[in-house]
Amino acid sequence: MTSLVLLEFNASGIKQPSRSAVAAAITLGEVHVMVAGVDLGEAAARAAKIPGVSKVLVAENSALDHAMAEPIAALLLTLAPGYSHLFAATTAVGKNVMPRVAALLDVQPISDIAAVVDADTFVRPIYAGNAMATVKSTDAKKVITVRAASFDPVAADGGNATIENLTVGDMPTLSRFVSAELSKSERPELTAARVVISGGRGMQNGENFKLIEPIADKLGAAVGASRAAVDAGFVPNEFQVGQTGKIVAPELYVAVGISGAIQHLAGMKDSKVIVAINKDEEAPIFQVADYGLVADLFTALPELAAELERS
C-alpha cells in the first residue's frame, strides 16, 4: 500500500499543511509525494528531505504552474493506478483539485479528515465541527484531503528520498491563470502560526486593526478575523477564520471583539488556549475561552501591548 501526497510549496519550502498531509499518509505505510509546476529544482530538493517520504515525483510543465485544477487532476489521474491513497491538505489547492481527481476515478472523496482509523476508515468533522463522523469508504482507491490543524506536520528536514522526473503529456487547456493578488506579510501564515490574534466586528474599522499589530509583533502571531470583519472590508478575505475560512489550532488564540458564532468557533475551537476579549459578558465566545476578559477592546488592546512590552 503506497500513498501519493500532492505537495504545495513556495520560496521558503514545502508548506506546513502539506507536511500535515504527509503525517496523515505515513500512518498507512509507504509515501511518495509530488511537486508540480515550473522551476521545481528547489521544491524537489526540499521535498526529498521530508522524513518518511521514499520518492518525490517531479512534474515540470508550464500548464501545471499555479496549481490549476484541470491539468493537475488530469496528471494525478495518470499516476493513480500506482497508489492506494491520494492525499492533499485541505487548502484552497487541495479542495480545488482532489474532488476533481476523485470524480475522474469514480471515487467519493473523503474531505478534511481529522483522524485516520485504518486504510478505509476516517474521522471527519461535519456541521461546522459540531459533530465528528467516522466514515468507511467502499471505494477501491481513496482520495483524501487532510485537516492540517489535526495532524502535527512531519519535520521539514531529515529525510533522503529519491527524485524522479515525470514525463508530462498534453494537458487540458480549459482554464488559464490570469493574475494573483497575494498579501505580503512578514507575519507567520495563519494555519502555521503558534499564536493567532483575530479581530471581529467590534474592531469597527480596518484602521483599528493597527491596535493588534504591536501585540502580534511581540508574540510572533498571525492576524486573523471573523467573517463580519472581512465582509465589512476591515481586512482581506484570507484573514477569515471559521467553517468556511481557515481552520487554525494554535497554542494560543486571542479573539478580540468577536461574538463566537458557531461558524467562527468551527475554525478555532481546537486551539490549545483560547483568550477572549469582549465587552459583552454574555458573548458566546466566553463559553469556549480559557481566559475571558470582559473589557472594551479600545482600552484593553493598548494595555495588553504595554504589558507585553514591559517584560
Binding site: 471515487v107 467519493q108 473523503i110 476508515t121 468533522p125 461535519i126 465541527g129 459540531n130 459533530a131 465528528m132 463522523a133 467516522t134 466514515v135 468507511k136 469508504s137 467502499t138 471505494d139 475551537k269 483560547i274 459578558e281 466566553f286 463559553q287 469556549v288 475561552a289 480559557d290 481566559y291 475571558g292 476578559l293 470582559v294 473589557a295 484593553a300 494595555e303 495588553l304 504589558e307
Partner: peptide
C-alpha cells in the same frame, strides 16, 4: 460510497475563567 459508522460529539472544552484585568 461512504458508510457512516458513527457520529459523535466533538470533545467539549472545559469552562474557563474570567480575569479581572489585562
Amino acid at each position: 460510497r461512504l458508510t457512516v459508522i458513527k457520529v459523535e460529539e466533538p470533545p467539549k472544552r472545559k469552562a474557563g475563567q474570567k480575569v479581572g484585568s489585562v
